[in-house]
Design a protein around this nucleic acid. Structure first.
Length: 201
DNA sequence: AAATCAGACAACCGCCAGACA
DNA sequence: ATGTCTGGCGGTTGTCTGATT
């Protein structure tokens, strides 16, 4: 079965949203409410795909969204949720009021995963420069010189590493000071939800 | 000063599941 | 029971900005 595309690709504007487009979308939803994303662009006078409108609304225009830097408590919550839930961003977002799944996902990929990654690197036995013929320090099969350069984890290496971060994430969390017990009830609540779903099935 | 590169984040894509006709 | 539509999700890519060489 061939799926129909969510919208016609021709004549559809892509890329960054302008303030005018935001205003059109905002006004339309305020007047008509959410939903019917497929027909919304036409009705709102937008040359956008319905999916694009929904994403823009849920991630940036929706009221009560918390913008700005993540707090250390949010960091800790994300670490722990990632450890227990994996990459279930939307579920994680439900535990972080005002944050969207996209925001959490981006934050994890660009900030937190890197922190764990460098933590993991520190835990590995590192050969000294003298032991290496080309004076390149190697740990975990990766070339540290590239990291030392500006501390970046390349997308491909990070992706490779991300496949096996749970153990390192757990180890990293254990180093965090127990400044809050915020997550225990959260994890318990999640476990309870899972059990309830199993019972319903 | 220009070129290059990494960081940050916005947006898109494909897939899936549920609702509905 | 089956096909189609729609919304939602996670992975990935695009793009802008600032730092570094």
């Amino acid at each position: 079965m061939v799926r129909a595309p969510c919208c016609e690709k021709v004549g559809i504007k892509r890329g960054r949203w302008t303030a005018e487009e935001d205003e059109l979308l905002l006004k339309y939803i305020q007047a008509n409410g959410e939903g019917s994303w497929r027909s919304l662009p036409k009705n709102a006078g937008l040359l956008r795909c319905g999916k694009s409108c929904r994403l823009r609304w849920t991630n940036y225009l929706r009221p009560n969204l918390k913008r700005g830097k993540f707090t250390s408590e949010e960091d800790e919550t994300i670490f722990k949720l990632q450890c227990s839930l994996g990459n279930r961003w939307s579920l994680m977002a439900s535990y972080l009021p005002g944050r969207t799944d996209n925001e959490i996902k981006n934050y994890w990929n660009s900030h937190l995963r890197r922190r764990i990654y460098t933590f993991g690197m520190k835990k590995k036995p590192i050969k000294t420069a003298a032991e290496m013929p080309n004076k390149t320090i190697v740990a975990d099969g990766l070339n540290c010189e590239s990291l030392k350069k500006r501390g970046r984890v390349s997308r491909s290496k990070a992706k490779k590493y991300n496949n096996n971060t749970t153990t390192t994430t757990t180890a990293y969390i254990s180093t965090l000071k127990p400044k809050s017990q915020v997550l225990e009830p959260v994890v318990e609540l999640y476990a309870l939800k899972e059990i309830q779903l199993l019972i319903q099935e």
